[in-house]
Every structure is written in C-alpha cells, then in structure tokens.
Simulated assay, not measured.
Amino acid sequence: MSDAEAARLQALALTEIARLEEIFSLYKESSALQRLNREGTLENAPRELTELLRETRYIHEATGGAFDPSVQTYWDVLASHYGAGADEDSAAEALAEATRHTGFARVKIKGARIVLPRAMKLTLNGIAQGYITDKVAERLSREGARHVLVNLGEFRPTGPKDDGSDWQIGLADPAAPYRIADSTPLRTRALATSAPYSASFDRDGKRHHLLDPATGQSSARYASLSVKARDATAADGFSTAFSLMREEQIARVIERAHDPDIGVHLTRQDGTVRVLGNWIRA
C-alpha cells in the first residue's frame, strides 16, 4: 500500500468516526443520544442509533439485564457527587433514588422513534466504541483494505497481516496496565476488554465505570475481562456485561448466544486466569 493510499484510508476512517460521534457522543450537546437524553423522545432517529439499540436489546436480554445502558442515570449521580466532593453516604442515598429511573427494558423503540421513561438517561459507551470500530473496519474493507487492524480501544481486523499471519493482540496486566501479561491471535473476529482500572470516580478506584444496573454499585468481580466475538459491537457489549456476572452465568450465556464462537479470558482479583468458550480461535 502506498503512502498516499494509506493517507486516503486514514482520512476516510477519521471521517466515519466523526460522523458516528455526532450520533453517540455524550460530550456533544448536538448528538442524537444527547438530544434523546435531554428531551426523552427522539423522532426520526438516525438509523445507526436504532440499529445499535436493537443490538443492545439483544445483549441486554441475553445477559439477563447485566448489560443496561440506563446506568447513565447512576453515572450522573456519581459524577455530580464526587465532582463536588460529597461523601459516600450521600452518594449511596442518591443511587438508591436513581434505581427508580433505570431499566432498559422500559425503553420504547418503534421504527425511528425512541421514547425513554421519565428521568432516564442512556449511555452507549459500553458498546458504541465497538460499533464504531465495526463501521470503520467495514468501510475500509469496501475500499479494498484487506490487511488492516482497526484499534479504537476495541480491535477488529479486515483480514490477516500482509504476510498472511494473524495479528497478535496484547492483554494488559491489570495489576500493572502498562505491562503486557499475555497475547492472543486475531484474524476473523473482534476483541474487547473491560477493566475497573480504566475509569474511576474516587482515588482508590472503588467507584468505577462498571456499574451494576440493579444497584448502581461498581463491580469488583474481575480485575480484567476480554471477549472475542463475531464483531466488535458484540465483543464490547458482552465484555461490559460479563464483568458484572458470575463465571457460571457467563458460561450459560455463551452456550445460548447466537455467536457460537464467543471466547472469554478473565483475570480474577487474585490474579488467576480462566478461559471460557472458544477463546483460542483467531
């Protein structure tokens, strides 16, 4: 691939990312998701938003509600309390109140119309990054890029490396995230990782972004959890959900999933590792 062709493909990828951020961003007031959260109803929603919400519905149901984008309601409580220096007790009280405004099953999607229950807000941060990864990979594939690895935090290749070998993806050591603890091959599937250390509200990391939809409490079940799946959307969503679930629950979901080749690599808090499903396949 020439430098000019590489530059052209990179520009296409950046354009696609910017376009999708206008739909899914929680930081841009003009995004479709922010308008939905602000107004509670969105008419003529972008096709990509309704498409991703349908995939979200599938993962929500497949995981018994563990994946639930209405946790944004909890996130707002935590960001407000810890940002203002409030104490833990007052955060707990506000979280208990917020449980009345969660539950993705209550979101109504009909055609291009989306309606949220009163005071509910959604975040797609647990799946949209994977979805955008997929869209960029698909766009590059249509342009003829056969040996590209898209890495937006989640990974999806358009094919093998140009020498025909698999891509090797490093898995961070959760005890020292700057260090690689293991690696895994990737060629036809996508990979996503969820870990408590990636975003927290407090200094000791007890209040972090992996929030239990039922309580608003942060999950400390695993030090890190990675998923391989048919695409980055599924890998991202399932890695978020599985981080909240017991190992036997994860195993049951893998058995029932539409994707028979889901693989999971989890690191327990004691540092031991377990692999579930079809992790080995690239």
Rank of each mutant, 00 (worst) to 15 (best):
P174L: 03
L210R: 05
R146F: 06
H208K: 05
H147P: 05
D212V: 06
P196A: 09
V150L: 05
A192H: 07
T184M: 03
D212E: 13
A172C: 09
R189S: 05
A175Q: 13
I169K: 00
G170F: 10
P177E: 11
P174D: 04
T158K: 07
Q168N: 05
D204Q: 15
L186D: 00
A192T: 11
D163A: 07
A214G: 12
P174R: 02
P157Q: 00
I169C: 00
P185F: 06
S194F: 12
Y178W: 13
A176N: 14
S194P: 11
T215S: 11
A145K: 03
L211S: 02
S200E: 03
D163M: 09
P174V: 09
A181V: 04
P174A: 09
T188Q: 09
P177W: 11
S183A: 12
H208T: 08
G216E: 02
P185T: 08
S165D: 10
G159N: 01
L149T: 08
T184A: 05
G216W: 02
D162T: 07
P160K: 10
P160F: 09
F155I: 01
D166G: 01
V148W: 05
G205C: 13
H208G: 06
R156A: 05
H147T: 09
R156L: 10
G205Q: 14
R187E: 04
G159S: 04
V150S: 02
H208D: 09
L171C: 01
T193G: 07
R207C: 08
L186I: 12
R203Y: 12
F201L: 15
Y197R: 09
A145Q: 03
P160S: 14
P185I: 02
P174T: 06
G216L: 01
P213A: 09
V150E: 02
P160H: 09
P177C: 10
R203A: 15
L210E: 02
P185W: 04
D166F: 04
P213V: 07
A181T: 01
R179V: 15
R207I: 14
E154Q: 12
S183L: 02
S200Q: 12
K161L: 14
L152T: 06
R146G: 13
I169W: 00
Y197E: 13
D202Y: 10
W167L: 03
Q168C: 06
R156Y: 07
D202L: 11
Y178D: 12
P196C: 11
